[in-house]
Amino acid sequence: MSNEVKYQTTLENVDWQHMKSTLAADCFDNGRTPRQLRESFKNSYATVIAYADERIIGTARVLSDGICNAYIVDVWTLTKYRRRGIATTMIKMLLAKLEGQHVYLFTDDAIEFYEQLGFKPQPIGLALVVGQWLRGNA
């Protein structure tokens, strides 16, 4: 296992099938197809993909209006690479592109991690799936 991690902020040469299979093997697959993953990342305001030994080992992306509201999603680090600062680096890379914006995210198992990065718990969040999950036009 290499100690060198490379961070890519473009979507050039991303192997979406590799991303899908790696996410699934690491229990972080929400059911998107490789094509849906590509569209999700392509339609994002900013993205970061972490690589080690030419393998995808981390992802993070942000949805934003570019003015005042942003939402960080798909933050993931391959289990055997966790606790090495990879997610922290990816989050900081995204935050650097969001000056002046209210940044929100949802987590139910990494609260302390995000608090260390300056995020504050919010008392209420609501959600709605329109129609059937992952059955949109993508």
Score class of each variant (00 low, 15 high):
Arg84Gln: 15
Thr59Gln: 04
Phe41Gln: 07
Val73Arg: 01
Leu94Pro: 06
Lys42Ser: 13
Met90His: 09
Ala50Glu: 00
Ser21Arg: 12
Cys27Tyr: 13
Ala70Phe: 03
Ala50Lys: 08
Gln101Ile: 06
Leu78Ile: 06
Leu23Glu: 10
Ile49Lys: 02
Ser21Glu: 13
Thr33Trp: 09
Lys97Met: 03
Glu12Thr: 12
Ala46Thr: 08
Thr10Phe: 00
Ala46His: 10
Gly100Cys: 10
Ile86Val: 13
His18Glu: 15
Ile67Leu: 14
Asp65Met: 11
Tyr71Cys: 11
Gly31Ser: 02
Met90Ile: 12
Arg32Lys: 13
Val48Tyr: 07
Gln17Tyr: 04
Tyr45Ile: 09
Val14Tyr: 05
Thr33Gln: 03
His102Cys: 00
Leu23Asp: 02
Met19Arg: 08
Asp108Glu: 13
Arg61Cys: 11
Ala25Lys: 14
Thr79Ser: 15
Leu63Cys: 12
Gly66Arg: 02
His102Ala: 02
Phe28Leu: 03
Tyr104Cys: 10
Ala52Thr: 13
Ile72Pro: 07
Asp26Ala: 11
Val14Met: 05
Phe106His: 14
Phe113Arg: 05
Glu39Asp: 12
Thr33Tyr: 01
Asp26Trp: 05
Thr33Asp: 06
Leu23Ser: 09
Met93Gln: 14
Thr59Tyr: 05
Tyr71Asn: 14
Asp109Lys: 02
Ile49Asp: 03
Tyr81Asp: 06
Arg32Val: 01
Asn43Cys: 02
Leu95Arg: 13
Ile111Leu: 15
Val48Cys: 04
Thr33Gly: 05
Gln101Asp: 08
Thr9Glu: 06
Ser64Ile: 05
Asp53Arg: 03
Thr107Tyr: 08
Tyr81Thr: 02
Tyr51Ala: 00
Asp53Tyr: 01
Ala50Gly: 05
Arg83Gln: 12
Thr88Tyr: 03
Ala46Gly: 03
